[in-house]
């Protein structure tokens, strides 16, 4: 078995709109080893969700993979036909959706919705599937007696747990979490993070986590990939990226969160707006908002993602590459 579970190579995902094409993901490469977890972090509109949706080929109708390769256990799924994709999704890679309120069907029992997912992928009887659902409920910490409940009878935290149970229904090798804790209360958020960490150890689960909240990534992920305007600007082990930050954008992002253990200083915003991906700027995409930007270099030449040693990659002319 190869070590790599998922490998994304130079992925470009574009969206067709009436005026042309939006380059939502523009040359993203990363990999994920077995039983590892990686977090994609960035502002809204940076392409993190599009990257994740591309890896399970779940893009909306106007989106398409322009070029690049997605290898899942060495198998190229970039051009897999829809029929085979259906077997691949959920059985191999599943997703925990964001809105626990909206991701469940309100007129169907929660257990039936999970049973449905199992029956679509495996040849088991309905009774066996229901037994498995009970096991899953137990695993994610929902009382098995609640197996006949409808979504509205669950609290927000329980619904999120049910969605996690659903994602685990077919023992996938990869679970993608799209802001799995965003709409939850602080304490419930802590419970769900604990649950996810616990499940990762128990089931040896690999995970791709999408969030805008850096602190959640530091709690759950081994690796972190910081995205900006459709590109990965920094990538490496979570500890290294957070403590030995190289890219100015990552640095700004970290300092946008208050730190209660440091003296009270106002957090800093990143000046300006993210660039328009319909017409991305030349050179480094962050150059217009970067205080270190060098004229004639950063706004002309695009920085490559270079390895700074120890699998810590950065795409910046000043902090990485050829000094």
């Amino acid at each position: 078995m190869s070590e790599r579970l998922l490998e994304v190579k130079d992925l470009r995902t574009y969206f067709k709109i009436t005026a042309g094409e939006v380059k939502a993901v523009d040359g993203v490469s990363f990999f994920l080893n077995h039983s590892e977890s990686i977090g994609l972090v960035g502002e809204s509109g940076c392409g993190k969700t599009t990257t994740a949706l591309s890896t399970i080929r779940l893009l909306p109708d106007n989106g398409y993979i322009h070029s690049g390769q997605i290898l899942f256990e060495g198998r190229d799924i970039t051009n897999l036909p829809e029929k085979e994709l259906r077997d691949f999704r959920w059985a191999q890679a599943s997703m925990i959706f964001q809105g626990a309120m909206n991701a469940l069907n309100p007129v169907q029992k929660v257990s039936d919705q999970i049973v449905e997912a199992i029956l679509l992928h495996e040849k088991v009887t309905k009774r066996d599937a229901l037994e498995r659902v009970k096991g899953l409920f137990d695993l994610v910490g929902i009382d098995v007696k609640r197996v006949n409940a409808y979504p509205h009878e669950f609290s927000g935290g329980m619904r999120q747990r049910a969605i996690i149970a659903m994602a685990l229904a077919c023992n996938p090798k990869l679970v993608i979490g799209d802001e799995p804790t965003t709409a939850l209360d602080v304490m419930v958020q802590a419970q769900i993070i604990d649950l996810i960490n616990d499940l990762r150890h128990k089931l040896n689960m690999s995970m791709l986590m999408i969030t805008h909240d850096l602190s959640i990534i530091t709690e759950t992920c081994d690796r972190i990939a910081v995205m900006y305007a459709g590109k990965i600007v920094e990538y490496g082990k979570t500890d290294v990226v957070v403590r030995k930050t190289l890219h100015p954008y990552t640095d700004k992002l970290i300092h946008a969160f208050p730190n209660i253990y440091q003296p009270r200083v106002m957090v800093e915003s990143i000046p300006g707006d993210p660039p328009d991906l319909f017409n991305p700027p030349a050179g480094c995409r962050f150059n217009a908002r970067c205080e270190h930007a060098v004229k004639g270099l950063c706004d002309c030449k695009e920085p490559p993602l270079v390895d700074m040693g120890g699998e810590h990659f950065v795409a910046c002319h000043l902090r990485g590459g050829n000094q």
């Binding site: 329980m158 304490m187 602190s215 730190n259």
Partner: peptide
């Protein structure tokens, strides 16, 4: 104390033992 104990600060070690409350409000 439970609420403050679960706060995670980016790039900081935890200073408090996490107190995770059971159930929901």
């Amino acid at each position: 104390q439970a609420l403050t104990s679960v706060l995670a600060m980016v790039g900081e070690k935890r200073r408090m033992k996490r107190i995770i409350l059971e159930g929901e409000t």
